[in-house]
Simulated assay, not measured.
Amino acid sequence: MSRVPESFYFYKAQLQRAKEEKERLKKDYEAKIDNLNNEISFLKEQIQAQHTMIEQSVDYVMKLEQQINSFNFELSNE
């Protein structure tokens, strides 16, 4: 039976470290992507809330304009 060269063990250990580093980097990357997705979701919620607030404000302004026009019409008919 032939003996395994010493360099084999060196490269085997290097390969194992590289695989571990790759896995660690993959986990870090996934964690960062999850954080970004959470932040994007939060920002989407904020934008939607602002959009709703603007819609409600525009509706309120339109109702006020209608009331003013109605009052002006009533005053002009008196």
Results as ranks from 00 to 15, higher is better:
66 Q>A: 12
36 L>C: 07
44 K>G: 04
17 R>I: 07
72 N>P: 02
19 K>S: 13
57 S>K: 13
58 V>K: 10
73 F>C: 07
58 V>I: 15
24 R>K: 15
52 T>R: 09
77 N>P: 00
2 S>I: 01
51 H>D: 14
59 D>I: 08
72 N>M: 12
56 Q>I: 06
21 E>H: 06
52 T>F: 03
43 L>I: 12
66 Q>C: 01
20 E>S: 12
19 K>P: 00
1 M>W: 02
21 E>R: 11
30 E>S: 10
34 D>F: 07
48 Q>E: 14
53 M>C: 08
58 V>D: 02
40 I>M: 13
75 L>S: 02
9 Y>F: 15
7 S>F: 07
26 K>Q: 15
24 R>T: 06
72 N>A: 12
19 K>N: 13
49 A>G: 08
58 V>M: 05
68 I>S: 02
11 Y>L: 02
21 E>T: 10
12 K>L: 04
27 K>V: 08
14 Q>D: 14
68 I>E: 01
51 H>G: 15
48 Q>F: 04
56 Q>W: 00
61 V>Y: 07
3 R>P: 03
51 H>R: 14
77 N>F: 03
22 K>I: 00
59 D>Y: 03
16 Q>K: 14
24 R>Q: 15
40 I>C: 05
57 S>C: 09
67 Q>N: 10
44 K>C: 01
73 F>A: 09
9 Y>S: 07
52 T>N: 14
48 Q>T: 07
2 S>E: 09
70 S>P: 00
68 I>Y: 04
12 K>Q: 11
8 F>W: 11
54 I>R: 08
78 E>G: 03
33 I>K: 15
32 K>A: 12
62 M>F: 05
39 E>F: 08
66 Q>T: 08
48 Q>A: 11
2 S>K: 01
45 E>R: 10
47 I>W: 01
50 Q>S: 14
25 L>M: 13
53 M>Q: 14
76 S>K: 12
38 N>G: 10
65 E>S: 02
30 E>W: 07
71 F>K: 13
16 Q>C: 05
41 S>P: 00
5 P>R: 06
35 N>A: 14
57 S>P: 00
18 A>Y: 09
56 Q>Y: 06
14 Q>R: 14
11 Y>T: 02
